[in-house]
Design a protein around this nucleic acid. Sequence first.
DNA 1: AACCCCCCCAACCGCCGCTTG
DNA 2: CCAAGCGGCGGTTGGGGGGGT
Length: 298
Amino acid sequence: MVRSPCCAKVGINKGAWSSQEDEILINYVKIHGEGKWRKVAQNAGLNRCAKSCRFRWLNYLRPGIKRGDITKDEEDLIIRLHQLLGNRWALIAGRLPGRTDNEIKNYWNTNLAKNFGSFSSRSSCKMKFDQDLGVQEYQDHITMNHSPVDPNEPLGISGIPILKEEEKPLLANESTSFIKNGSNDHGQDMFSSLLVGDDDDLSFLMSIDTDFGEGVTDFDLQLFRDDQAAVRQENDDLGIIVSRVDSNDGISSSSLHSSGHDQVKVERGLMSGQIPSLDLELKKLASFLDLEDDWTEL
DNA sequence: AACCCCCCCAACCGCCGCTTG
DNA sequence: CCAAGCGGCGGTTGGGGGGGT
């Protein structure tokens, strides 16, 4: 299908927005509301492309946009969410009040990518500690930076703030879809190679260690075991039931339910102790979705 | 002071999925 | 059912500022 451009390419202002243009856009959106960006571009008297108007509004003019330095807490949250979700900037931004996907994307690319690398490589599903990120820093990330963005916000298992009720359906759908379909390159890199069976039955291959164990050092594994133990202890303290990998046969299966929404059944085969990162990350995802109660061993 | 280089980030581009007629 | 429109998203670009020589 041939798509028409969102606006005529000729005669359209490009580049930085002037304060006058900002004012016009703000006034127009105040009166007419968001959306219908093509109409905004046409009717507001802005010689701008519809997408440009939308971008300017969403990223800079919208009320509640937080400008300025990313705090340490926010950075930690970005790192953790990126571990779970990859380059899903909009989803990550959704957990950082006042921050936009563009800002987080820029921050990642300029400040964090060199330390944590791209999510596109399989091995980066775990946090990498390379020459730039030392072992001590890595441990600090795991053990010390479990603080929420909002100090009053309740924490889930991994230290990620528990979602508000109204946020659950959207993110649950997003995340189950992400796990189930691997709808982008990153998701597929992380999960598709592990999938067998039909669409409703996600089975992780036993060869998972070859996908995720690559380059994992003993010390790396020990760090994750320690983190996992700490998480379990935390859950025990909270009385939360989470899945446990059976130490006898090394295989367990769990279901991850999105209560009241699309359900995805996740069957996992994990060699005990071999791939703690994926096990942990799935728990974190469950925690992230506030689904701890459903994350029980079958 | 002038030039160059690098980095940051605002903005653009193209693709994709959903909606609408 | 299909074509077209629209909005959203992630990747990429390039202008400008700051630091170095």
